[in-house]
Design a protein around this nucleic acid. Structure first.
Lengths: 259, 259
DNA sequence: CGTCTGGTTGATACGACTCAAATTTGGTGG
DNA sequence: CCACCAAATTTGAGTCGTATCAACCAGACG
């Protein structure tokens, strides 16, 4: 990537609205749309790392919108084994429309300290109704989330440890890029190897060895919570990464939408 | 299960509306609701086994509603490896609201000869708008589909072959029960061992050996496309199956809804 | 400083894969 | 109704990827 790449505002500001940035991959947003998103983000709180936002069995009361930090959806078996089934980065919604379900079938946990907005059911449906562009974008967002979940199924089902980790790293890099938090192959990467293990269905020991292989092969650098992808094309090739499931082929953020 | 168990009408009739049966697990439906579902099922066609309903890269034009037969969602890697990421049985919708996406990121294929309704975007939104109860039920349906996808992620990520197959068999049995096509531990089961392998991320050889183990342990019988679960409680135990992700804890079909 | 969390290393075990062939089943046409 | 063929299932032997268990090390932190 050229050093002349334009830096998205969200990245410059650091605290910029990741959601807006993300939804704009699907549709142009107006200033009012962005204001509405900022509005629902007002009611936020901080959550410590390793705390649950909501636990399996709880009644869902809010949609969570991650403003800053990383979180995960996970499920646990009676014998203690744990699987991370989704990862959330800033700008991600956890479960638009969960209200329809009576109980959570999984938990959502903070992987880092989290800044997270809590949006009530009414507020949520108002948002969709008043700002149809956002409503549609939220639909798109849900469909992409479902596509990501399918891709994870494939990832666990038939890729080797080496491919699996490569694939995950690329996905996260691209999702961070979308919200202006990745560029030139670099991004924050706060997951521990144990987290990666839980997400990829491997042991942390094997994650460790596999990451070393990736480093040895000159594909990545990863230390001090910083990921540096050295050779994205080759990483894409070895993991057979096909970005189509992220559905970024829309008009995007080229122009502002009026009103 | 006692031989006096009431046989659901859908099962008796054979061709009964599986969709209605399924949605009624979430909410009561009125006669008009059921009629509306029957209406959108009018426009159907037959698809031969092993044919695609729609392929990766295609533009989505219809929602598919499986009226009879089994289908799957699958993805394929450039090197030919294939993963089934979802299974569809009668009454299942493939991708309510796909229209928002430009291209399919996966294919949908018939596993058996299929009777499938093709529902256009307008017809689909009419259905939701005119019959709010159905609209909500479709939402629930999508959320359950997402929950199932997460459970598959967990299944592939941390269960052994033995547990994985057990879990899948139970899930399918329960989903078939929901549409009145399973009872007393028995149901049709048209998947080949190769299909099971593609769905569980195992090889067909290993599926074969693992099924033999399940038979040896007195848990199941499976031959001539017929599954017989001999000891459901034990099968649930060994696979650590928790039905909460199917979200069947709603008012259900106890009463008819008016109008 | 000692403690703790996260990362690294080594030795060993085992579950699942691979490859190859045999057998059974189911469908089809003569 | 039987002969044939293709598809599906089963079996065996050998290999490999990943797990397991157990230490050990480095840096962060109170």
């Amino acid at each position: 990537m050229s050093p002349l790449t334009v830096v998205p505002t969200a990245f410059q500001s650091g605290t910029g609205a990741a959601v807006a940035s993300k939804l704009e991959a699907f549709t142009r947003l107006s200033a009012d749309d962005r204001a509405a998103l900022a509005q629902v983000s007002q009611n936020y709180r901080f959550v410590d790392a390793r705390r649950d936002l909501i636990s399996e069995g709880d009644k869902p009361r809010h949609v969570h919108l991650i403003l800053d930090g990383w979180a995960c959806r996970y499920k646990q078996l009676p014998d203690g084994r744990r699987q991370i089934v989704s990862l959330f980065v800033p700008g991600d919604f956890c479960d638009v429309n969960v209200f329809i379900l009576k109980y959570m079938d999984h938990s959502i946990g903070a992987l880092t300290r989290l800044k997270v907005a809590m949006i009530g059911p009414d507020e949520m449906s108002e948002l969709s109704a008043d700002r149809p562009r956002i409503g549609r974008a939220l639909w798109w967002n849900e469909l992409v989330a479902a596509a990501v979940q399918r891709e994870w199924t494939l990832n666990l089902g038939l890729r080797s440890a080496y491919e699996r980790l490569s694939h995950l790293l690329i996905e996260l890099y691209m999702r961070l890029q979308l919200i202006g938090r990745a560029q030139n192959g670099r991004c924050d990467f706060p997951l521990t190897q144990a987290d990666l293990a839980d997400a990829t269905g491997l042991t942390s020991v094997h994650v460790n060895r596999t990451l070393q292989e990736l480093r040895r092969d000159g594909l990545i650098e990863l230390e001090r919570k910083q990921l540096h992808i050295l050779d994205l094309p080759r990483l894409i090739e070895v993991s057979m990464f096909n970005p189509n499931y992220l559905h970024l082929d829309h008009e995007g953020r080229q122009f502002d939408a009026r009103c």
